[in-house]
């Protein structure tokens, strides 16, 4: 996932992650959604989504390992 070489694209990376995280919660403002719709690159969204899912799984695994070791 490239960060891009100009400022708007950098903001794009953060926006992508933000959009994906909000999607995990299942909530989004219409205005932000329109913003996402017009500015986000779907490929980036998919990559961020997969990455966030992996992080989500690993977090749960860490919690479980902590609990089991008690």
């Amino acid at each position: 996932m490239s960060d891009g070489d100009d400022t708007p694209q950098r903001a794009g990376f953060l926006s992508t992650v933000r959009a994906v995280l909000w999607s995990f919660a299942g909530v989004r403002k219409r205005r932000d959604y329109n913003q996402d719709a017009s500015s986000l690159n779907p490929v980036h969204v998919i990559i961020a989504g997969i990455f966030a899912a992996v992080v989500f799984v690993l977090s749960i695994v860490l919690v479980v390992r902590f609990v089991v070791s008690q």
Binding site: A25, G26, V27, R28, K29, R30
Partner: peptide
């Protein structure tokens, strides 16, 4: 047809 605060709360 939208109220993000409410939605966040009920999540």
């Amino acid at each position: 047809h939208e109220n993000t605060t409410v939605e966040i709360l009920w999540t």
